[in-house]
Nucleic acid binder design. Sequence first.
RNA 1: CCCCUCGUAGUUCAAUGGAUAGAACUGGAGUCUUCUAAGCUCUCAAUGUAGGUUCGAUUCCUACCGAGGGGACCA
Length: 559
Amino acid sequence: MKVAQELAERVGRAAWNAGISADLYKTTVGYALEHPFDLKNGDYATAIALQYASREGSNPRDFAKRIVEALGDIPGIAKIEVAGAGFINFYLAPSALTDTIATARGEAWGRNDANKGKKIMVEYTDPNPFKEFHIGHLMSNAIGESIARLLEFSGAQVKRANYQGDVGPHVAKAIWGLKKLGINAPDPAALGKAYSTGAAAYENDDGARAEIEALNAKLYDRSDADINALYDAGKKTSLAHFENIYRTLGTKFDYYFFESETAPTGIKIVREHSDVFVKSEGAIVYQGEKQGLHTRVFITSKGLPTYEAKELGLAQMKAEKWPFDSSISVTAHEQSGYFEVVLAAMREVAPELASKLRHISHGMMRLPSGKMSSRTGDVITGESLLAELVESAKERATDSRAEDTNALAEDVAVAAIKYQILKQASGRDIVFDRERALSLEGDSGPYLQYAHARAHAVVEKAREQNITGNMDTDAEPIELSRLLHRFPEAVEYAARELEPHLLTNYLLEFASAFNRWYANEQILDGSAGAPHKVALTDAARRTLKNGLWLLGIPAPEKM
RNA sequence: CCCCUCGUAGUUCAAUGGAUAGAACUGGAGUCUUCUAAGCUCUCAAUGUAGGUUCGAUUCCUACCGAGGGGACCA
């Protein structure tokens, strides 16, 4: 990192000396450095000469040469060359990489201070009590957890929040179903059945629909003791069930918000701003057309708040609970339209708060055959998927070295599902292929875990032989050590973009380099070079350990 | 009709406006008396169409074609 900063500054100065304009200097300095995709083009590179020369009509290569001359010698850089159309490539010196290896063996490897001191709340997962924990919640959880950890690694103080829909028509449907089926002490499976019973009746039976709507109103005002008892029991069961899932997934929430709590606050905000929200067809709406959006209902004609009004209340309650600099909500893409409208309304009623809110939308999990639909039963719940993965991993774990193969199977299952979610850009849909998801090979979470376990085993064995890993400052740079050097920058990049997949991609490349190196190199070969190789292995182990942590994936030491 | 995502090997995904567009899976050929074969090596294979901006476009802009999501009382 220090090398990179120094290099960026020097490139800027050299370009300045070589005749770059003040304007361009400002726009390029600090952004001028990049990592060549191909290591043969150096550890750092800059296209500054290409960018500048085109504006002058001069030859990019000549200009690049002038910059290189102005640069002179740079500590930590062994070679500077002009390549291609006018790129300037920098190659790290052995001593710089040795420093990197030493740093990489420490616990703090990969941390940065890009968000130092910032208070950031991250809201994610958001399952609804009385309904199943489905794959969308799994996606939100995996992405949200990783973002929270990336922000923590960049120095932010992070609070994890979970916002759950414990009131609304979906709950009324489930309660109605419970009554219909005569269930008084619901378990999670019974709740799922009750919900689908209620949902089907709501669509097909007018009488049932009226009953459900009446029930919904009673849930808001809590006027019926029998219903309250059923509701409280169902909610308790649901939440306890979700806690088990969070534990498996490795998430610990700081705050829980419920729609039943945000509703009154939301209604109050809407009612207090009659200049922003208007009556229309008996409902109170926000007319988003003036912002290029669409009109949405905030309070229904029956006087009940919609998700939109509750969201207003939620934002205010979050800020009261823990004053934050920024609050991030991770939800499915299908909600981004409504979120935009809520945000537009919020900008009018609470501009300062609105400016701190950020919405990240993730894609949907689709089946190869099309969209999942709970109506047709063509749906996979998050829990059933996890259970299947655990079974699959157990079969594979029979010849493993782990003491507890059940625990290992769970770690591997979590890795498999989270990796599949986190390896692609978060906004995109994921086409769910059961066979691929259950596969534990190739481009997968277990691949990263396996590389980590291997590195761990070697380090342990070296310790038994009292080889602590003294480094050779003249060791020739190799692919593995050069990629190692990029880890902190990959972390910072992923944190800046709030995109875990940028880190996932890096880790795959790194693990792949490690596995290649491992296959071709006897690390504990008794030679004078062994300690240095042990140090590099230890650095790789730490990189994979910290990298997996940032993805929210467990890193078992034995597989 | 409007708005938001997105079109890259047979499939699922990468590529901060740069260098020969990278992986994985599938198919084919190899590889465990040596630190973990959930590994490694080799091999076949791709930017929807038409323009524009740029020294340079998978990336930015426009149009078209195609997929998914959203568009008043669900979330």
